[in-house]
Design a binder for these strands. Structure first.
Length: 562
DNA sequence: GTAGGGTTAG
């Protein structure tokens, strides 16, 4: 028995699935349509291309150039290199590219997968072809040099391609400005070009915004943003991201609130921005706002939320967030899992942190460091050392942050010998320089066990100069061990560094008092009162504690659902 | 056919 397809063929229907798919429907409906037109406007995927090719062969419309053009365009979406291979085939078959072929080929050559010389070769061929001054071809050439030349060369080469054009359009201007924008370089030249343009569109303005933002010149970016005649989603996003990257999270928030419609990237930027600025309450408040308008955060925004929760340190909040990630099916990618590990460990739920850590498909430096740091802050010194060995067995390299965790674990657990070994080893075995945080840990460690002289020697050796954290730790140790001499020296440097921190004055004064040096104690208190007007709010321990209490009350209000 | 943005971890 004949299959349906064979039967249709026998009856002369021709294309066996005629009328059943988009391409053949178009073909049968539009009798006047040329094959090239069909390929150009109705072919967007490889199956389409195959169907059309077969149609053209059957109906003897098999001019090769339109088929190649279409194939190069379609294949470009899946793999730019296969488009370039097709170009080689064309040249072998002596089919010359036309003004439709070159823009696509140049686009393929702009891919990072394509070696630079391919585009350069195309450039020389198109110069001989006579299509050099077709606008889309010339514009694509600017784009190619903008993307593919080295950072140092891309602006001059793109500019050369631009200057050689006898006629330019807004796409040409935007392509060149886009080069400045991507690099955030030579914005003076970009501005001169921009000012001279008669034709500008929203993309032209956005290129200026991005260029200024990438150059770190938010004031100029904002000026342009306020001046531009119309803004689209890109304009708002560039500004919100720009402010946030520069740490100006309040300015970012102001624009974010004014955006006509907030996209997920901007939500994510804001949630993460507050978290990174050490303002977890505001990060969580935004998360609540997302929730209340029915937006489920994506993985990137969730990372900000989780990291905010880890700063707050409340176990019930951490558990709620952990459940939320499960309940909403948020992608548990490497970063989400790492941040969850960090959160649970910092909030004291070590079992959960371990269980998530072990659940990870692979554990990198970040994951190990998260768990090590979290365990260290909970005083699990022995577990940290175990974990560090496991990390080395797995061949994962520690970095400077890992060592902050390891040293602080040694400090909290009183593992002085181990701590000093790590201190030496980080330079000798891992080539990691001692940073201010490492010094602070080791000085704290020595101070806690009463090795004040050694700790003081360390302070003097700090290449980055005195550091409030390290000096503060040593001053606290001086109080524990009643060492007035070192306390005197440390405090005088600490007063210079933190003139407004009255806690340091109180500490020194109480050291004198414990040694019954009442006059000195009174002198320090007097000094503190004299400097009173400059003191920062919340600078005593009690005030700090009260502030913390007040803050957590605020959290309770804003995040009571948690 | 050719031009623009993008977030996330320790």
């Amino acid at each position: 028995m004949l299959t349906r397809r064979k039967e249709l063929r026998r009856r002369g229907v021709g294309w066996p699935w005629a009328g059943q798919n988009r391409v053949s429907r178009i073909w049968t409906e539009g009798s006047s349509r040329s094959g090239a037109e069909l390929l150009q406007h109705h072919c967007n995927s490889l199956p389409h291309l195959k169907q059309i090719h077969a149609l053209l062969l059957r109906t003897h419309h098999h001019h090769l150039l339109p088929i190649f053009n279409c194939a190069i365009r379609v294949l470009f979406k899946s793999n730019p290199l296969s488009s370039l291979r097709l170009y080689l085939l064309m040249t072998r078959l002596s089919v010359s590219p036309d003004n439709f072929t070159y823009p696509f080929l140049l686009n393929c050559s702009s891919s990072p997968l394509s070696p630079l010389f391919v585009g350069q070769e195309l450039h020389s061929r198109l110069c001989k072809s006579g299509f050099r001054h077709h606008l889309p071809v010339a514009n694509a050439l600017i784009h190619f040099y903008s993307k593919c030349a080295s950072d140092a060369d891309s602006i001059p080469l793109a500019r050369l391609a631009y200057d050689e054009m006898p006629l330019k359009d807004v796409v040409s201007h935007n392509s060149l400005l886009g080069t400045h924008a991507r690099l955030g370089q030579r914005m003076h030249d970009a501005r001169a070009l921009f000012s001279g343009l008669r034709e500008k569109n929203v993309i032209t303005w956005n290129a200026m915004l991005l260029g200024y933002a990438n150059a770190g010149d938010l004031a100029s970016a904002r000026e342009a943003f306020d001046l531009m005649p119309e803004r689209d989603a890109v304009s708002w996003t560039v500004m919100v991201v720009g402010y946030s990257k520069c740490g100006l999270v309040d300015a970012a928030k102001e624009l974010f609130c004014r955006m006509p419609s907030q996209n997920m990237v901007c939500w994510s930027v804001m949630v993460n921005g507050y978290s990174q600025a050490g303002r977890p309450e505001e990060s969580l408040a935004l998360f609540r706002e997302m929730e209340s308008v029915g937006i489920v955060p994506d993985a990137a925004s969730m990372v900000g939320v989780i990291s905010a929760a880890s700063q707050i340190g409340r176990p019930e909040l951490a558990n709620w967030i952990g459940d939320y990630v499960d309940r909403k099916g948020i992608e548990r990618n490497e970063r989400v899992l790492t941040t969850l590990v960090d959160m649970h460990a910092k909030c004291g739920n070590v079992e959960e942190a371990f269980s998530l850590f072990n659940e990870m498909p692979s554990r990198d430096t970040f994951a190990y460091t998260a768990l090590i740091g979290g365990l260290a802050s909970n005083g699990h010194g022995a577990k940290v050392l175990e974990l560090f060995s496991r990390m080395r067995e797995e061949g994962i390299e520690p970095d400077h942050v890992t060592f902050v965790g390891v040293l602080s674990a040694c400090s909290h657990a009183g593992l002085v010998d181990e701590g000093l070994e790590f201190w030496e080893s980080m330079i000798q075995d891992y080539g990691i320089e001692h940073g201010a945080d490492h010094y602070a840990c080791i000085i704290d460690m020595l101070g806690r066990v009463g090795r004040l002289e050694e700790a003081y020697e360390m302070v003097k050796k700090m290449p980055m100069g005195p550091h409030a954290g390290a000096l503060g730790a040593l001053l606290a140790a001086c109080k524990t061990y009643g060492n007035v001499d070192i306390a005197n020296n440390v405090a005088s440097r600490l007063f210079e560094l933190e003139p407004g921190n009255t806690g340091n004055f109180v500490l020194l004064s109480s050291i004198y008092a414990s040694r019954e040096q009442w006059e000195d104690a009174a002198r320090v208190r007097k000094m503190m009162k004299e400097r009173g007007p400059t003191k920062l709010p919340g600078s005593s321990w009690i005030e700090n504690d009260m502030q913390r209490g007040h803050r957590s009350q605020k959290i309770d209000q804003t995040t009571y659902i948690l």
